[in-house]
Amino acid sequence: MANKLIVSLSPHVHSGDSVQKNMYGVLIALIPALLVSLIYFGVGAAVVTITSVVACLFFEWAITKFILKREKTTILDGSAMITGVLLAFNVPSNLPVWIIIIGALVAIGVGKMTFGGLGCNPFNPALVGRVFLLISFPVQMTSWPKIGQLTSYVDAETGATPLALMKMAVHGDASALEQLPSAFDLFIGANGGSLGEVSAFALLIGLLYMLWKKIITWHIPVSILATVFVFSGIMHMVNPEMYAAPLTHLLTGGLMLGAIFMATDYVTSPMTHKGMLVYGIAIGFLTVVIRLFGAYPEGMSFAILIMNAFTPLINNYCKPKRFGEVKK
């Protein structure tokens, strides 16, 4: 025979799935939310998103090439792009370019590449970037523009977000809850907030797409949303004037974005279905606790980062049910 036979162990076939396919699948699932933000925030949304993605790609390329000195660049695997989009989705649409670039540097540089790149980072890189910005630039990061100012960017007029109103209610302003937009407006996204988080509807389309493509399983998003609903429902029943209705909690702030896209990040979430449920329930619980009792109006990012830290522990204790295992 002319050519040498290839030998390797079974299996000799592959499903054809790849890291790239999964990453680009997530990006496709993010498109509806991006379109909604373009409709409501116009130029600002476009500038922030493009800046963030380009900066993330650049930092990933530069770090792999000049600091890690790896021969192969990894910017085409889609993970840096996701980080870029998610970082943009988590900031107000009037955030100046230089702050976004700092955020991208922290997200990719500190959050991802210091640990060795894709697959090694313990924390969700986009959230590391976001929380860094939130703590370093609290004013810029918490003044959200009102919707509908399509042509303005940093000069956009800002207004109170639903979450801020909810926080005011907790602090005793009984009329604040009445100023909330209707549930329908919250659902389709006609309210202020970070640019990608406003439309629960668009994010849910993304979720359905990812479930259909089997990119993620239902466990994490469903357990987070269910926990938030139940826990905030209990609080609402205790005092409806202070605590907003559970549906309002579900539709406001970064909850949907976090539950669907951030908490489900492969690298930083648990590996077993049981572990995913524990992780999701804990995130939901922490989010509501921070929203109602903490200093910040929104608790999603912190809740996810905290649970990211617990992921190895969850992996260690939540083992899948072994075949033939007898219940004790």
Binding site: H14, N22, L118, G119, C120, Y266, V267, M276
Partner: peptide
Amino acid sequence: ARSEAQPCIRCAKCVSACPMGLE
């Protein structure tokens, strides 16, 4: 030919696929 191996992204698909409930 097998494709080149990349770092594990911890997607947990192998855990879901394992018929013996292993990791």
